[in-house]
Amino acid sequence: MVNKRSSPWLPLFQERCVALVVWLAVGLVTTLFLWLVSEIVLQGIGVVSWEFILSAPQNAGRDGGIGPMLVATALIVGVCLGVSVPLGLGTAIVLAEYTNENRRLSQWVRRSLDVLAGVPSIVFGLFGHAFFCLFLGLGFSLLSGGMTLACMVLPLLIRSTEESLRAIPREYRLSAAALGLSRWTTVTRLLIPLALPGFAAGLILGVGRAMAETAALLFTSGYVDRFPTSLLDSGRALSVHIWDLAMNVPGGNSHAYASALVLVGLLFAINLTSSFIADQWKKHALT
């Protein structure tokens, strides 16, 4: 405890002030959060129903549901992961495990990833539009959108996987080598399982980014609001739908709220599940 007699009052006053400011700031942040979430929940909950989730929109989205958007979002995220996961995993392994060879190459790759990680999503959108839609002739399609997003989440995935690979003690690699295990076995049986938590964290982050992304999809996957029938179809992601309802459809707010509620709900669910799994994992690893 503070000794009242020997301590001058000014530092104590300062101490109290800072504590007050800290708590106030935290109160402000929490209030903002609750405000934002309650707004979305209260305004959106009335509209959300199975009917809303499964059916197609009508009247430009003022009526009907968001079925096609959910399908399109799932397909876009699927394409994004299908492309970025193998590429990201492979690259991370090269960067972390094959460091001695091609030093120049890996440094170059790493540097470009740093830059890529900072590139605004709209610039990826421009690139995706010019490259996937026009140059490769994929047009406005789920495939174009998904691959554009794959370029965007690739750095995230690589960085988190590489970091968890690097965190694996060197001894494991040495003793694996001393047992005459091939690199294939070492990588697949030992390193990848050990790096899985970091990889999963990056994956969840990537899925979150991909599901939340709007700008890059506006002019790569388009905004046709029918149920997509193939990956070459144009499709409207849920986030794009929210934007469209809010900006371009007078009277679309209630459905925009409901769509936002569904999107945020999905993201929260992913987030909570992943941290639950991470907790379980930690418990498991320690016993």
Binding site: L87, I93, L113, V119, L154
Partner: peptide, 21 residues
Amino acid sequence: TVLRLCAVLSGVVLLLVVVFL
């Protein structure tokens, strides 16, 4: 070989972004 291909592809993405822009 496969892994190195991945790394090169990842590096190429940035190159492509810049080239197309």
